[in-house]
Simulated assay, not measured.
Amino acid sequence: MINFRYHVVSLTAVFLALAIGLVVGTAALNGPVADSLNETVNGLRKDNQQMRQSVNSMQRELELEEEYAAQMAEVFLPGRLADKRVLVLRMPTGQDHTEGVLKMLETAGAKVTGRVDVQDKFINPDNNTNLMELAVTAARPTAPASALPGNGNGVETSSALLASVLLDRPQGTPAVTEADRRAVLTAYSNAGYVTAEKQISGPAEAVVVVSGQPYIDKDSAKKDESVVKVAEQFDRTGAIVVAGNGSTGGNLVSVVRGDPVLAQTISTVDNANSAQGQLVTVLALVQQLTEKKAGQYGVGDNAADLLPRLLQ
């Protein structure tokens, strides 16, 4: 019969075996196994330090490149756009680098006629009918609704109306009055579709559309399409540059580059979120205004070159 003493002896044997195992195991680990583990840990630690140093070095290099581009702009840009009237049209996805683009334009001597921020509400497909109705009610004698597209696309129709009061008219077309320009902008501003950062000083001969990454929500395809519609309607003077961020996924830059018609008249820069790209944006606009030539620049897909090769 198994009694209490038997259980005590059995448990004692078990604990003794565990103790011996721990001692033997510790002794083994203190030998070659422990040395191997220590070498592995030390190697990983060194690799981690090297990678951290590499990342810090690349970050510093990037910062220096940005600083270099900014300093080059101060030397190379002044006077390039002297007295040229430029409108900055900021799309909802371009808010992070709009100020940088504006600074470069000012460095080049451009006369910025104004900055108009297109709001998400303007791009939202749910507002198509409201935009159609607003285009009719906001139209004025020198910016009549009869001159607008009649295909039922609210973004396209409203963009056409805004372009007609913000940009130069085609030769031989009566100019819009200042009162009508203010009335149209006020109508869209009061409805929450656009925001004008300051009073528009007059029509522009060129426009920089500041855009960014493609949309990623459930309405992304329709919203990306609407951004393209806006750019198409502002492509009236022959001087339009898209200051973008990236060139894939259906954003404005990628669509323009993939369209043989749009690429003939609209210039794109795919890294305008950097000082280098903002500098190139101005150079692309100079090329548009002086050579009547569009180009696709940057570091992304389908870029023809890093920057324009301007004629002297």
Rank of each mutant, 00 (worst) to 15 (best):
V155P: 10
L283Y: 04
N38C: 13
Q296H: 15
V227G: 10
E63P: 00
G212F: 09
A284C: 02
R45T: 06
G212A: 13
A160W: 08
A204L: 14
A28L: 12
M72P: 11
A272W: 09
N127L: 04
E39W: 07
N130T: 09
V227D: 13
N48G: 01
N42Y: 15
D117V: 07
V176D: 14
V23Q: 08
S274V: 14
E61H: 00
Y193C: 01
A275S: 10
P308F: 05
I2T: 13
N128I: 09
A191H: 04
P214T: 06
G212P: 15
N251T: 11
P174Y: 13
A243P: 02
A191G: 03
Q119L: 10
Q119F: 01
I2G: 08
N190Q: 00
V269Q: 11
V118T: 04
T186A: 04
N128D: 12
K111Y: 00
D126Q: 03
R140E: 09
M58F: 03
M51N: 03
R60S: 03
V194R: 04
L102V: 00
G43D: 15
N271A: 03
D301Q: 15
V241C: 13
P203Y: 12
G212Y: 15
A108N: 02
E291Y: 09
S189G: 02
T26W: 13
K229Q: 06
A145C: 11
L81T: 00
Q171G: 12
V256D: 09
P32I: 12
E291V: 07
A284G: 04
D117I: 08
L161N: 10
V8H: 14
A175Q: 05
A163D: 09
A138I: 00
M1N: 05
N3C: 13
T268R: 10
V24Q: 09
D224G: 09
A204V: 14
V282K: 02
E291I: 12
G238C: 11
T268G: 14
A239K: 07
D235H: 10
D83F: 02
P170S: 05
T40N: 06
R5D: 11
Q71F: 00
L29S: 08
L148K: 13
R52Q: 00
A73H: 03
T281A: 13
V24M: 13
A143C: 03
